[in-house]
Design a protein around this nucleic acid. Structure first.
Lengths: 330, 330
DNA sequence: CTATGCAATGCAAGCGCTTGCGGCAACCTT
DNA sequence: AAGGTTGCCGCAAGCGCTTGCATTGCATAG
């Protein structure tokens, strides 16, 4: 059996309460006794039982993080950022991968909520109505989507997309495609709207395709569709779709760059490694993860005072690489 | 406040013990009352407080999973497999990403151990002596590394590597490079040894390079080194290194395939998407994850009876894609 | 009709920790 | 010198749940 608080208390000849206070450090304890307690505790190899601790204190020092798909390279950086930020604030992170399955999301969130001090939900996908069910699971913050009445950290795709369309326009493209992400996805709606706006403003013809799942395979399928539409440039909902598309194009002997320009969104680590390298709209995943941690911990600390929901906006920008080139003259 | 067991008990007019038994289902309760209790509990929206439950029962229904780096595409499939297998057995998974930092691994494991029913450690990297410290954190199972006295699921690289070297030999390569992974990594040692053995057997000259971190950037650095050694074929410690190397080679105008053959290890999802597609040794990540869950749960269930450590071996095989081709005649 | 067994349920003791409240010295006040 | 502070610390009451044991009622056996 592990050594308990009581064991330490007995060894030092003090009450458990004092030992508890000495170790958790919040309350006043004589400096000398504190040191003695710490020493003995260390010698005995005492480690507080977190479960018992959270039962009484109500805190667990765990943060819940819900992501749609760990395998999507866009998420690991977010996860890492959340973990390291959380760690520096003394928290651990419980990750749930909901496998792009919205229904799970709600359920998992409810279950998780009991063991964690706060929830961070990164889910561009689940419909807003369902998300709203989660708002009362305070403290909770949403990343990359807007939920009425909840604090969230948003990524504003419009700037990057504006830049992307301008980039294509300046390369002489006059007719571009947009490969939709999942139909009911909030971020797809956002991105799609931004593409529309930018095209309208620059007088570019827009062809919509999809929806596609944010997976490489979907991009592979998209490729053939794109080819049949005779487009010279496309913007994909995310890098994965773009990457799959590029792979398939290359396989079919279509040269990405010279023959067709493709732009991804997310700027995931892979985009610099593909061939050709993928021009992509950088989404500050790590920053949004860190921000989310800060927000959720703020909420957790001020549980009582009902602060009004904050909304932090982060910006995007275009990273030009090798997958975009002047439109071929026909 | 959430509804507690006592609330439900009061509503049904029974004692908390009965309600507890009715809901957890393990003990005998009259069928009629059980149904009534279930009904009321559902109506009241009762959800057991997991924290309290685990304090008394000692179980948490959480499995701990320690991985070196979520961002390495080799791991997400493992994680997903572990999660889904665990879910089907009624467990949740607590993931810790130790950022390739061995020292953390030990610490994290110890801390985690208190809140989880069992530990799965996937860490090809940490030195064996340190790993051994973890053996007493039963139930624990190690993936992809052998630790004396502990149950583990091993991936036997030798077959796949043998196939790989044979493949290269048959393509006419007579001098190949091996790009070492991290120096003290168990799996690197294993792979390296296998490469040596295969080369010796087939009379192929072997040049070792590295060590390199299992990251794309390291592969990029490796590329220039490889180039200067005038090799016609290399086997990399993992896909990431291989991918980085290919990207850099391509950038320098060296044609991967015709000019230099490269083989990765892991067969991560990216390998089919690179250009050219990467010939790689398939490592059954998902299977090993599932197996690990089964093993650790078995251990957990038979905590008392000291069963002797099992060792499950999984096999690897070569997946030939576009990055390998006949040696250029010079 | 009383003894016995069994199924169904209640009692109560924790699990290991936190925390409000109060005790009690030792120290200040005026 | 008596009342008031202050700083440390102990008491004890839980947190919500599980579980060994006792209790009850009733059917069955003797």
């Amino acid at each position: 059996m592990a050594v308990t608080l009581a064991d330490v208390a007995q060894a030092v000849g003090m009450s458990a309460s004092t030992v508890s206070r000495a170790l958790s450090g919040t309350e006043k304890v004589n400096e000398a006794t504190r040191q003695r307690i710490h020493k003995v505790a260390r010698e005995m190899g005492y480690e507080p039982n977190q479960v018992a601790r959270s039962l009484t204190s109500g805190r667990s020092d765990i943060l819940g993080l819900i992501v749609p798909d760990i395998a999507n390279p866009f998420f690991p950086p977010i996860i890492k950022a959340v973990q390291s930020r959380a760690a520096s604030r003394g928290k651990t992170v419980l990750i749930a991968d909901v496998d792009e399955h919205p229904a799970d999301e709600i359920k998992r969130a409810r279950i998780m909520r009991k063991r964690v001090d706060g929830l961070i939900v990164v889910s561009p996908r689940t419909p807003t109505e369902q998300m709203s069910q989660l708002v009362d699971l305070q403290p909770i913050v949403f990343v990359n989507r807007e939920v009425p009445g909840a604090t969230s950290v948003l990524v504003d795709a419009s700037e990057g997309i504006q830049e992307a369309v301008e980039h294509l326009a300046s390369l002489g493209h006059t007719r571009i495609g947009y490969l939709n992400g999942p139909r009911r996805s909030w971020s797809n709606t956002q991105r799609r709207t931004a593409v529309h706006a930018a095209c309208a403003q620059l007088g570019i013809e827009l062809v919509e395709l999809g929806p596609f799942e944010p997976q490489i395979q979907a991009g592979v399928r998209a490729a053939d569709l794109v080819h049949s539409k005779d487009l010279t440039a496309v913007i994909a909902y995310d890098d994965l779709i773009a990457l799959g598309l590029m792979a398939r194009m290359t396989e079919r002997g279509v040269k990405v760059g010279p023959d067709i320009s493709v732009i991804g969104i997310d700027d995931s680590p892979m985009s610099g490694m593909a061939y050709p390298t993928l021009t992509s709209i950088h989404v500050p995943g790590a920053r949004s993860g860190m921000t989310a941690v800060d927000l959720v911990l703020d909420l957790a600390e001020n549980q009582g005072e009902p602060s009004e929901p904050q909304m932090v906006q982060l910006e995007t920008r275009l990273i030009i690489r090798g997958s975009t080139a002047p439109a071929r003259v026909r």
